[in-house]
């Protein structure tokens, strides 16, 4: 196992890479994990905070992966574990900075007016990103996790919420985006 060349590491999925990293602690496996999940995690945290905090949270998260690699359960999915660590670290930091209360608001507050306009791709991208920013924290979080490929069950696990709560947030978030991007998405 130790003799697997680095080039092979690129062909392994994050769960396999984590198993190797858990056993050996060698940096090549962590490198593979960062290649696979680093950008996804950074983007997820960045959308929920700001660049400085996102870097800080990502650093904390990956350092925890190094420190706690032995506590990772082989039967769980690495990316779910990673995002759970990052999410908890982010919430702790936001609470510490007293930014948490201002970021959350009831789900039903996201009621944008429908734009209903056909726009060019660049404008659509900008509108999407703007709409994402405007979403309440918890709805945005749920939606981004789903767009990252997590199932409802995995999102529930990451956010410590019930499946129904997650589904509700996803529903509101999608409705909001749908309205912002226009009906032509249907």
């Amino acid at each position: 196992m130790l003799s697997i060349p680095l080039s092979w590491a690129g062909t392994l999925c994050p769960d396999q890479l984590m198993q190797h990293y858990q056993k050996t602690g060698a940096s090549k496996w962590l490198d593979g994990l960062i290649q696979h999940c680093g950008d996804d995690l950074y983007h997820f945290i960045l959308r929920q905070s700001d660049p400085a905090l996102a870097q800080d949270i990502c650093q904390q998260t990956w350092l925890k992966v190094m420190e706690k690699r032995h506590s990772f359960r082989a039967d769980s999915r690495f990316k779910t574990w990673l995002f759970s660590i990052a999410r908890n670290a982010l919430l702790d930091e936001l609470k510490r900075q007293q930014r948490w209360q201002s970021l959350i608001c009831p789900d039903e507050l996201a009621h944008p007016e429908s734009q209903g306009l056909a726009v060019c791709p660049v404008a659509r991208q900008q509108r999407f990103e703007q709409a994402l920013r405007l979403l309440p924290f918890l709805q945005r979080e749920a939606l981004m996790l789903q767009l990252e490929g997590f199932s409802v069950g995995q999102i529930s696990s990451i956010t410590n919420e019930l499946d129904e709560t997650v589904k509700s947030r996803l529903r509101y978030a999608r409705r909001f985006l749908q309205a912002r991007l226009g009906e032509q998405n249907e």
Partner: peptide, 9 residues
């Protein structure tokens, strides 16, 4: 596409 613009430093 949004993610492409914000990669991990």
């Amino acid at each position: 596409q949004a993610k492409q613009k914000h990669r991990m430093p």
